[in-house]
Amino acid sequence: MKNILVIGANSAIAKATARHYAEQKDSLYLLARDPEQLAVQKDDLMVRGATSVECAAFDATDFTSHGPLIAQALETLGHFDIVLIAHGSLPDQALCESDFNVALEAFNVNALSVISLLNYVIKPMQTRRDGCIAVVTSVAGDRGRQSNFIYGAAKAMVSTYLQGLRGRLFPDNVAVVDIKPGFVDTPMTAHLPKGALWAQPEQIAQRIVKGVEKRSSTVYAPGFWRLIMFVVCSVPEVIFKRLKL
């Protein structure tokens, strides 16, 4: 039985992952924006078999709240075996270019809030010398594309941060897993047309669970994105900059 903190718990990907852990009879602590949805999820996870589920409302951009929220979660759970961070937002690139406040908000939600939260999560895990941190970033962070580079840059910031953190926490036996989903059919992408490359949140959840279990460093989800991103990253910049991607 594990103790699991899920941040951004109402995200479709986090929800699918939490369900898996609930069915393993784990204990969960959920942080997310909408308390009504949290209550719905709590009941769901309890029926699925969770040993206990507690939750609290949380806004990622309210940085001052992070410390007390994590402290409360730690007190409730006792310790963290797994911390999953999944909240995020997909900003409109054109709006980000015309209004810096939109870009700033995107960086706050997708990048800086993650770094702030991790600050509070790390210490107790270091002390306990065990556990796993999993953060959902994106394949969009692997290479900047003209259609989506504010989001991409924010995700890249987190991925780079996680690389460093992985080394820092290695001696403390705390694993850091970077989850990079490709296209996933979730509310965030509800407005986009769907094609053959699209995955369901349950598939991503399976990859997360497996990645955490194996303490992998980087997990592409589904796995074929590793190959796609290898190809995308191999295109020489002189050509790439001319592609309307």
Partner: peptide, 18 residues
């Protein structure tokens, strides 16, 4: 498809709300 949550289960009666 997005309202796919369990709500309650009673072991004694076998009644499942979802």
């Amino acid at each position: 498809k997005s309202i796919d949550n369990f709500i309650d289960f009673d072991e004694d009666s076998g009644l499942l709300r979802c």
